[in-house]
Structures are given as structure tokens and as C-alpha cells.
Design a protein around this nucleic acid. Structure first.
Length: 453
DNA sequence: TGTTATT
């Protein structure tokens, strides 16, 4: 024992004598540990949790006990952050994965250290994860990249247990993959180094490397999609009271809380309820905030609105909220008598209903789709709907968002179900001043068109 | 100038 060679420091002389209550079977004489002073650990090494350790034993005391099963990479007794008191347990990582497995099977629940009532615990630390924490989702791959390419990319970070590129039924790559590492540490290292680090050929954005969804997250995702479908097909007839963006924000917050609060074991029904509440909140956004009876001078045009006081604050949607429900003209977005909106013709189906009727369609027919630039930074899809809903049935509205920052790119698309509405919207809204900006509203460029403007 | 995908 006294001659532990190599990097393993010999246990300090006096210290508590180490032994198991069952049998003392020559612990500590096995390992010659030649090699570098700084040990290397295998990529697939396992971090072990060791419990039921007598408080009197420190790392040096414990070392010989565990060295029987192989070279130790790291051994740390857990201490209270504040008091520094020994917590009766430790983390142990062997250089070799195999050593950890041997130690676990030989020691876990098998022996009891002196002075303890319960047998020692030796098992993978919780931080090692039980599968999900070692599995990565990889996005923004090139469509032509296969398993081999992905493996090449991730192989430097550890032992890859699985590597699968997701493909459509016809075999073409969906541009994403799953990679499972031997340990959580390897997975985290890969995330650290690779996420956002490069853009693969043919990808629209930089590489995505993150933990794969858990089963629960996957189920939630599915339900979100289903709820979305339901909402698009059957817009709930909601009371359109005085509910503006602020109310919406509260509802969304509540929905988020509900979703976050669903701990393990929450049934699918409650999850759906949370999702449906979210859908309801979204529906409320569409409460028309615009003056229904505001007869605007159509001939004037937006360019005749110089010096318009900013109707929309840069820090929120305060002015967007209808403060007097149903009272045309007053306290509305356009309290200057220069609203660009045409009167809503009676007899036309509720535009709200129409707006949602086909909302899952991205684009309408040619000539129905608008490209809108110079949107206020805080404009989202909902505000875009609100702004263009008076001109006709909005089939879709989408503000582009930078995926990395979640910030609006200040442009978006609105589609109507007919070209006349689109033209009316252009006439009324192109050049319209909001805050410091003037909207640019024009027909969306067809995919194949080559004109810059 | 319609984006990013979850076995």
C-alpha cells in the first residue's frame, strides 16, 4: 500500500484505516499505475456517485479502496457549499469505463463501510443522464450529408453510440439528425463546440446542436400541432371584449405558466387544456382594434400624413389597445381623423372568422400576397393581422423573426384571398407612417421573379 | 420576399 506508484499519491500515513465491515480482502495492492501524472479518461467514462461514506474519510482515505478496480481519474468528496462539511458522498470517475462498471458491480449495496448502517452506494451519477441527456438533435445539416458526414463531425467529442439522419419516405434528408454519445459530458462538449459554429453547404442557417426532445417534450410538440390545426379549422367564437395586447400577454403568460407547471406525470388531458388555452389567447389577439366606422379619405393617401404623431410607442402596444370598445374614432390607433381604413361593408362575413378560416395556408393566389417592410420592431404576427384585416380576408400573416435573437426582422408577409383586397391594402398602407417609420407595402415578388424591387 | 426539421 505504501508504494503506490505513478500518479496516484500514496495515502497519507496515519489516516483512518480503511476497510469493509464484511471482509478485508487485500484492498489496494492490485494496481501498478505507470503513466503520466495527469491521467486521461476515456471518452465514454462514467461518473459515479458514491454514497454512504463515513464522514471521517477524505479523498486520500477513499482512493485505495476504489483503485482496486482501475486507475482513478477524479475523486471528489462532496462538501457543503457554506460550511464545508463532509456530506457523506462523493463523485468518482475512473479513467476507463470498464473500471466504473466493475466497481459498481463489486461494491454497490455489497459492502458497508465502518460506522455506517447502510451499504455503500456506487452507481452512475444523476448528471450522467439515462439516455436523453446524451442524445443530441442536430439541425441545419446539408441535405446531402449522410450518417458518415455527421459522424465525422461529432467523432472528436467522444464515442458515438448512435447516429441517424432523418429522412422523408422518399429518402431525402430532412436536414437534421440524432447523435447519441456515450456520456453526457461528451454530448455537452459537442454542443459547446459545434452549435452555431458553421453553416453547412446548402443550409439556410448555422448548425444547430442541442439536446434532443424528451418523450414528454415530443408529446407536447405533437399536441401543439394538433391544437394549432383545431384552431385554424374551428376558430372559437370568443367574446370580443376590451381585450388588447396587454390582456393577450397576460393570457399567454398564464398558458406558459400552466405548461411549465406540468410536472412529471401530468396527463395528456391537462396538457391539451394548457395548449387550448394558448390557442384561445391567440384568438383574442384578433379582436379588431380598428375603428369600424372611421370613414377615411381614400383619395388622400398615406403620403399626406406628415408629422403624424407616433401612434405606436416603441416600447409597447399601449396605443394598440382599444380603450373604448365599439366607440368609433376615439382613442383608437388613428385618433387623428386620418385613418387609412375603409369602412367595413355590412353583410360581409366576420373578417375575424375569415382571417382564421385558412390561416394554415401560407400564401394566397398570385396578386394576393403582400410584402411589408419597415414594420415596427415590436410588431408580431398578431399586429400584422390587425393592421391588414380591415382590407379583406387575411389568409395568413407572418413577421420574420431572427431565430438566434427572436427579434423581428421588421418585414413580413400578408396574404388575402383576393387581389382587390391586396391592392386596396397597398393603396392605403404603402408609405403609411408608424412611429418614425413608413411602411413599405407591395406585392410579394413571385419566387422566380428576378426584379430587386 | 414564406425559415428551423425531433427517431
Amino acid at each position: 500500500m505504501a508504494a503506490a506508484p505513478g500518479g496516484s499519491a500514496p495515502p497519507a500515513g496515519p489516516g483512518p484505516r480503511l476497510g469493509f465491515s464484511t471482509a478485508d480482502s487485500g484492498v489496494g495492492m492490485s494496481g501498478l499505475n505507470p503513466g503520466p501524472a495527469v491521467p486521461m479518461k476515456d471518452h465514454d467514462a462514467i461518473k459515479l456517485f458514491v454514497g454512504q461514506i463515513p464522514r471521517g474519510l477524505d479523498e486520500q482515505d477513499l482512493k485505495p479502496l476504489f483503485e482496486e478496480f482501475g486507475r482513478i481519474y477524479e475523486l471528489t468528496v462532496l462538501k457543503d457549499r457554506l460550511t464545508g462539511l463532509h456530506k457523506g458522498c462523493a463523485f468518482l470517475t475512473y479513467c476507463a469505463r470498464d473500471s466504473a462498471l466493475k466497481a459498481q458491480s463489486a461494491l454497490h449495496e455489497q459492502k458497508t463501510l465502518p460506522g455506517m448502517n447502510r451499504p455503500i452506494q456506487v452507481k452512475p451519477a444523476a448528471s450522467e443522464g439515462r439516455g436523453e441527456d446524451r442524445k443530441l438533435f442536430v439541425g441545419m445539416l446539408g441535405k446531402q450529408q449522410g450518417e458518415e458526414d455527421v459522424r465525422r463531425l461529432f467523432q472528436p467529442f467522444g464515442h458515438i453510440e448512435e447516429c441517424t439522419v432523418l429522412r422523408s419516405p422518399d429518402g431525402t434528408s430532412k436536414g437534421c439528425a440524432f447523435v447519441k454519445f456515450g456520456s453526457q459530458g461528451e454530448a455537452q462538449a459537442a454542443i459547446q463546440s459545434l452549435h452555431g459554429s458553421r453553416t453547412m453547404a446548402g443550409a439556410s442557417s448555422s448548425l444547430v446542436v442541442k439536446l434532443a426532445d424528451t418523450d414528454r417534450e415530443r408529446a407536447l410538440r405533437r399536441m401543439q400541432q394538433m391544437a394549432g390545426q383545431l384552431g385554424a379549422l374551428q376558430p372559437a367564437p370568443l367574446p370580443l371584449g376590451a381585450c388588447g395586447a396587454y390582456t393577450t400577454a397576460i393570457l399567454q403568460h398564464q398558458a406558459a405558466l400552466l405548461a411549465a407547471a406540468q410536472g412529471p406525470g401530468l396527463g395528456p388531458v391537462a396538457a391539451v387544456a394548457a395548449q387550448m388555452q394558448h390557442v384561445a389567447a391567440f384568438s383574442l389577439i384578433a379582436a379588431p382594434l380598428l375603428p369600424a366606422a372611421a370613414n377615411s379619405p381614400q383619395g388622400g393617401g398615406p403620403s399626406t400624413l406628415p408629422g403624424l404623431p407616433a401612434p405606436i410607442g416603441v416600447n409597447g402596444f399601449g396605443p394598440l389597445t382599444p380603450q373604448t370598445n365599439g366607440q368609433p374614432g376615439s382613442d383608437s390607433l388613428y385618433n387623428n381623423g386620418l385613418s387609412p381604413y375603409p369602412a367595413q361593408s355590412p353583410g360581409v362575413a366576420d373578417p375575424l372568422q375569415q382571417a382564421y378560416a385558412g390561416m394554415h395556408h401560407y400564401a394566397g393566389p398570385e396578386g394576393c400576397n403582400l410584402f411589408i417592410y419597415h414594420l415596427p420592431q415590436e410588431f408580431g404576427d398578431a399586429e400584422l393581422i390587425q393592421t391588414f384585416l380591415p382590407f379583406g380576408a387575411v389568409v395568413s400573416a407572418k413577421v420574420f423573426v431572427d431565430r438566434a435573437t427572436n427579434q423581428s426582422k421588421c418585414f413580413g408577409f400578408v396574404s388575402f384571398d383576393n387581389p382587390t383586397s391586396a391592392q386596396t391594402a397597398i393603396q392605403a398602407m404603402n408609405g403609411f407612417q408608424i412611429g418614425m417609420k413608413r411602411l413599405k407595402v407591395q406585392l410579394k415578388r413571385p419566387k422566380d421573379a428576378n426584379r430587386p424591387y
